[in-house]
Nucleic acid binder design. Structure first.
Lengths: 198, 198
DNA sequence: CCAACATTTGACCGATCAGTCAACTCGGAA
DNA sequence: TTCCGAGTTGACTGATCGGTCAAATGTTGG
């Protein structure tokens, strides 16, 4: 029952936070929903912010699982990215239905934006996660260049950053316009962002 | 002293919120910083959320001023967009210096993301503002097509949305990586996002 | 069976929060 | 001069917040 409780707290917090923000969810909310008492929460986490970081970590674990599922070797590298975008959009739609027809933003992007304003340490942690995410794109683009699917003149690193930024922006617009399908545009947009500079 | 007080409250709230989020700033913080008492604040605003909406409106007023300054007729349409990106990035840098070396996100994007989770009415309001922003890009792209600077095969509306999404994403990354210069990339990226689809 | 440790309990705290209220000030219209 | 209502004051509330704590309860290894 040890690790189990900690896991349940993080999972519950994740669910609650995802529909809003960390600030809008109180530790009492989390405890009530997780069937746990305050003391237990603070036995595992030194502060609410630490819980927020754990939620961020968990969101990244889930996101990287989606990435791993999409980025399989027997699919051309650029198609892997498309597969991921499809999964990402579908997850957004499912979450929208799970909540009352409210489109959530990117579970990582939202928390990153919130925690980045909480001092330097949470910010660098968030930055590391974004960088890890970018790495998936970096690898795929690099491999695509080897196959001739992407022009060698394209700088791999900056291109990968472009893709992530674009996806995050689309997720924000999807939330504001309450339309998860907006992120599907990423597939077409990515192709242009990966074109050789002129 | 009537409208003046209201203005001062909104302006002060804007400054405080911009460095963090609406949730992290209390009404008491705003009152103290604005030299105003609680009752005055609630004389002008029925709730804290209403104050948030007023801040959003003010941020849009400031942003549209920057847009108007960049989008002048005697400059080619695509160059107007570049001018705006430069101004936007410069403002981000200035704000970073004004705070203690902490890069803020897009003042509109951040609030939009936060208020979009506060029910449907704040969300649609935020969406309207984003749409108004997009309109600047729409007009410029449309004019650029007339001059032959953009391929007629490009759909104007979706292209403008792409640009806004990309800029918002870059602003988020700039905040996470604490580097306002990241948004300058938008100028090159926009050119690719405006290329004809293949 | 015991001792050491991890976990859980639930009451509790001081601070802070958004929001209220009755009383006061003051400028302008009648 | 009187009156009225917009603006202002500042104390106040009830709720909620993040966080603490000492005691109770498991759990594990010797």
């Amino acid at each position: 029952m040890a690790k189990d409780t900690r896991e349940r707290i993080v999972a519950t917090a994740r669910d609650l936070v995802h529909g809003a923000s960390l600030a809008q969810v109180s530790t009492e909310d989390v405890c009530r929903a997780a069937g746990v008492h305050k003391g237990s929460l603070y036995h595992f986490f030194p502060s609410k912010e630490a819980l927020g970081m754990a939620v961020l970590e968990r969101n990244w674990a889930l996101m990287s699982a989606v990435l791993d599922e999409a980025f399989v070797d027997d699919v051309p590298p650029l198609a892997r990215i498309d597969r991921f975008v499809d999964s990402f959009a579908e997850r957004l739609s499912l979450m929208r239905d799970a909540m009352g027809g409210v489109t959530p933003g990117c579970p990582l992007g939202g928390l990153v934006g919130e925690l980045a304003g909480h001092g330097d340490e949470p910010r660098t942690h968030a930055a590391r996660i974004l960088h890890a995410w970018t790495q998936y794109f970096t690898d795929a683009i690099s491999e695509a260049k080897g196959r001739g699917d992407v022009d060698p003149a394209v700088e791999t690193g900056p291109a990968a950053t472009r893709l992530l930024a674009h996806l995050q922006g689309l997720a924000l617009l999807a939330k504001a316009y309450d339309d998860p399908r907006l992120v599907l545009q990423a597939k077409k947009d990515f192709r242009q962002l990966l074109a050789a500079p002129r």
